[in-house]
């Protein structure tokens, strides 16, 4: 077990038509609905990832938040692929994709919509993009639960199951959404990985 303490080395919030990185607002996008907002974020950061277009809104939201979270903040060459993992939580599971899939069934059931009717697919999308092969998990909680999240992630880091963990919240139903991702590493610097800090950043 390493002596270094876990710290939040980066954070990203996507909420209310804006994107925040490490507490500072980095982008606001005027848009009438979630899909156009997410596209605006994608275009602003000049991301070039054709898979983005086929994702459902939950995956787009979580994936975009992970791109901003990791950009200029994460040196993945410090770790092996299986040392980096993801723990996400949300309240509404994949309900947004479920509703859209079920609408499609009345006509022709679409496999490309059905695959998103699982809430952990967003984790898979982030793993594919970055080659992360460590442990991951998707838990459903009634609201953002900093204490539960912290416990889960500390277990993984303290037991050397992971060396770096992306954790947080990504939730979508219709045009209601919020993502809050935290990069947690054993490091000298960063924000303490504590419940109060998680709640403070979440409520930015």
């Amino acid at each position: 077990m390493s002596a270094q303490k876990q710290h939040i080395t980066s954070s990203c919030i996507v909420s209310g038509n804006a994107v925040y990185k490490d507490g500072g607002r980095v982008l606001g996008v005027q848009s009438s609905d979630l899909a156009s907002f997410l596209l605006g974020v994608y275009q602003h950061f000049e991301l070039n990832y054709p898979k983005f277009y086929k994702m459902d809104n939950l995956s787009k939201l979580g994936w975009l938040a992970s791109e901003v979270l990791l950009k200029d903040s994460f040196d993945k060459s410090k770790y092996q692929p299986e040392e980096i993992g993801i723990v996400l939580t949300n309240a509404n599971s994949s309900l947004d994709a479920d509703l859209k899939y079920w609408d499609s069934v009345q006509d022709v059931a679409s496999p490309s919509l059905f695959v998103y009717t699982l809430p952990n697919i967003v984790i898979g999308e982030i793993c594919i993009r970055n080659g992360f092969k460590g442990e991951d998990a998707l838990y459903i909680t009634p609201q953002f639960d900093a204490s539960f999240l912290q416990q889960q992630v500390i277990y993984l880091l303290d037991n050397d199951i992971l060396k770096a963990c992306i954790c947080g919240w990504a939730d979508v139903v219709g045009d209601e959404y919020k993502a809050a991702l935290f990069l947690v590493e054993k490091s000298e610097d960063g924000v303490e990985f504590g419940v109060e800090e998680l709640d403070r950043i979440f409520n930015t």
């Binding site: 692929p81 299986e82 993992g85 993801i86 496999p111 695959v115 697919i121 984790i123 898979g124 999308e125 793993c127 594919i128 970055n130 080659g131 992360f132 092969k133 460590g134 442990e135 991951d136 998990a137």
Partner: peptide, 18 residues
């Protein structure tokens, strides 16, 4: 033990390594 393939969202790894 839990792992991710980081390969495809609906198809398994080709190698089984993960």
């Amino acid at each position: 033990g839990i792992s991710n393939d980081a390969n495809h969202i609906s198809g398994p790894s080709r190698t089984g390594q993960e």
